[in-house]
Design a protein around this nucleic acid. Sequence first.
DNA 1: CTCTCATATCGTTATTTGGCGAAATGAAGA
DNA 2: TCTTCATTTCGCCAAATAACGATATGAGAG
Lengths: 126, 126
Amino acid sequence: MKKQTMHEFMNITKALADATRVRTLLSLRDGELCVCQITELFGLAPSTVSKHLSILFQAGLVESRKEGRWIYYQLPGKTAPPVIREALDWVIRVNATAPDAIEDSERLSLILKENPADLCKRQCQK
Amino acid sequence: MKKQTMHEFMNITKALADATRVRTLLSLRDGELCVCQITELFGLAPSTVSKHLSILFQAGLVESRKEGRWIYYQLPGKTAPPVIREALDWVIRVNATAPDAIEDSERLSLILKENPADLCKRQCQK
DNA sequence: CTCTCATATCGTTATTTGGCGAAATGAAGA
DNA sequence: TCTTCATTTCGCCAAATAACGATATGAGAG
């Protein structure tokens, strides 16, 4: 078990203190998403979503993977430290039945039916 | 299990997104403290500490009890909803060995040796 | 009742943070 | 090579927040 400073811990709690970032984590529950899919889901500017993802990444709450031109974000695997796994389990379990989360989930399932390439083009032209 | 909105959940994460408030929760680990003891511990203005406690209270992360002129704050008991207990367990377990928390703990043990009445007088005259 | 005193509320100020659009980056395609 | 395009970084603005001191509150003490 890694020794944890309070400063690192505060990076996690600050990352969790924004609704868009919490909704992002919940949306990654069922698998990875690329930036433009998340952008479409929340209706925010790509730069804004990128900033949120960077904050989640620095806190250790998401990992990223590059494939072609896209960058996919996902929840961390089993290598993640316990503090991270516990936080994610808590966030996901508590909000599993929250109306906002269910709405996001429904919109996400529509987005996943679209061709990612079309989605990205639409997002990046805004 | 109570139905949980994301808004209520964000009250909790926002309350946890400040180092002073996290340190306050850790300091209450071993029992209740009155406002002036917490004020002394952190070297902040009484009004600032009061505000922090109010934010923790509204999130459900602390309870309060009035005795004479003092108001004692403590961690919630078994009646607290699971989301709160899980959050507190996580916060306390992860930071148990954090240097900042240990420092606070040492300073707190000195404060607990003092007469509370003297402490309050000193704080409130600042 | 009046005074004291612990705490809470209010008003202000400085800092932080979330949002956007424009420009930079950097890898894949032509 | 030159272009395209997904993402990131930068600069700016508006809103939120933490800090303080001053004032308000309200429950004991005298």
